[in-house]
Amino acid sequence: MLHRFLSRGLGAAVAPQSTVPPPSVIEPIEDIRASFIDKFQKRRIEAGEKPAERAVFRKQHGAAKGKLTVADECPAKLRKGLWQGGPYDVWMRWSSDVPPNIPDQNNNTLGFALKLFGVKGPTLATDNPLASTADLIFQNSDIFFVNNAQEMAAISSEDETNAFTAIHKRSLLILNEMAKKENSLAAARYYSTLPYAVGEEIVKYRLIPAQAVQTAAPGPSPVYLAEDIKARLKAGAISFVMEAQSFVDDSVTPLDRATERWEETISPFVPVARLDIPAQDIDQAGQAAYGESLAFSPWRTLYENRPLGSIADARRISYPASAAVRRSLNGQLMEEPDHPR
C-alpha cells in the first residue's frame, strides 16, 4: 500500500513519464479547477472586483518575515529534502477563508502559508520550477470536510454542498468544527491537514506555539486578528515549533480520507523545525501588499517532500491557475521572487 501510494505521488509529479490517468481521475481535478476559478474567482472579477483576489483564503490578516531552522531533535529518517537544508528565510501570510469584509467574529477557518527562500534543487511546481523557493500551507484544522477530490468535485455550489452534507453528516460536523473561534493568530495551532512524503516516509505536519501565549477575549473590531498580531509583533518576537506525525497504516492513518483524524495517541508528533518571527511592524509601507502578491502552492516543493492524495493532485492545477489570473489582472510579476523582501 505504501509503495503504491508513493508511486502515485511520483506519477503526478512527472506526468510525461506516466500513462494518462483514467477519466475518473481527470474529471474531478478539472471540475475543481473550474469551480474555484471559473465559477468563483472569475465571476467576482467580472462583477467588478478590484484588485482581483485569490480563489480561497481571501482575507489577509498580516504578512511577516521570519526564519525556519531544522530542529536538532529532528529524527534522521525525516532529514530529507527540505529538512536536510536551511536555515531558510521565510515570508508568511495569515488569512481566513472568507471575503475581506466578513468579521473575524464569524469564526472562519484560518490559513497560514509559508514561503521558504534559498531552497536548493528544482521543485514540482508547474510554474517557475527552478525558483529557489518552497511553500508550506497550513490551516487551523487537522481534518478536512471531504475525503478526496471526487467528493470535493461534487460540491461546486451552495446547493450542492447542502445536498452533500445532508447525506454526509460527518462532513457537516467537520465544517462546524472548522469554523472555530481563535483569539489570536499567535496562539492557534496549524496543520497541513493532508499527508506529505519525506523521502520514503509519509507524514502530516503541524505548527504549535513554542511558548504559552496569553490571550484575551476579542473586542468588537471586525479585524481583531490583524490588530492582535500587529501588536504582538511590535512588542516582541513569537515562535512556532513545526512537528511531524508519521503514517502507521491505512486503517489508522489513512492517506486519502481527509475527514479521518490521525490520532496522536497512535502516532505522536516529533519536532522537525522551528519558525522564529522577529519583532517587526507589519504595517510598514509595502509589507501587506507584498504578502498579497505572494502565491503559494503545496507543489512548490522538492520531490522528496511532495504532497500526497487526490486533493493534493487537484491543488497542483488549481493553485497556480488561480495565482496566474490574479497576478495578471493586478499587474503583478508572474515569476517567483528570487530573494525575500
Rank of each mutant, 00 (worst) to 15 (best):
A235T: 08
E158H: 08
E304R: 02
I282Y: 05
T19D: 11
F144N: 01
I208G: 00
F247D: 01
S141L: 01
S322D: 12
S328T: 15
A289G: 09
I282A: 08
G85V: 03
H3G: 12
N140P: 00
T126A: 13
R306E: 07
S35Q: 11
F5I: 14
A321L: 06
L110Q: 13
Q332C: 04
Y205C: 05
G331N: 08
M92T: 01
I45Q: 07
R341L: 11
D104N: 10
T253S: 08
A231E: 10
T161C: 10
R170N: 11
Q139K: 03
P103Y: 04
R93F: 04
P87A: 10
L233G: 03
S132C: 12
R206A: 01
S246G: 01
R326A: 09
L255P: 00
L130V: 02
L172F: 05
R79E: 04
P298N: 12
E243A: 00
V98Q: 02
S246L: 08
T69I: 07
W91L: 04
L130F: 06
L294D: 03
R315M: 14
I29E: 14
E158R: 14
N183W: 01
A163E: 15
G291T: 09
I37H: 07
I155Q: 05
I37M: 02
F57R: 01
A12R: 13
Y224D: 10
D249P: 00
E73I: 00
R4T: 14
E27D: 13
V270I: 10
A217W: 09
K39M: 05
V56M: 10
K67V: 14
D313Y: 11
Y290P: 00
A47G: 10
M1G: 14
S251M: 08
Q105A: 15
D38W: 06
Q84H: 08
M152P: 03
D72R: 07
A210Q: 12
I266C: 03
P16Q: 06
L194A: 13
K39R: 13
N305L: 00
R341F: 10
V325Q: 10
L2W: 09
F5R: 15
G286W: 06
L6I: 12
G48P: 03
T259Q: 14
A279Q: 13
A226N: 05
I229W: 04
M242E: 04
L6P: 03
G286F: 09
L116M: 15
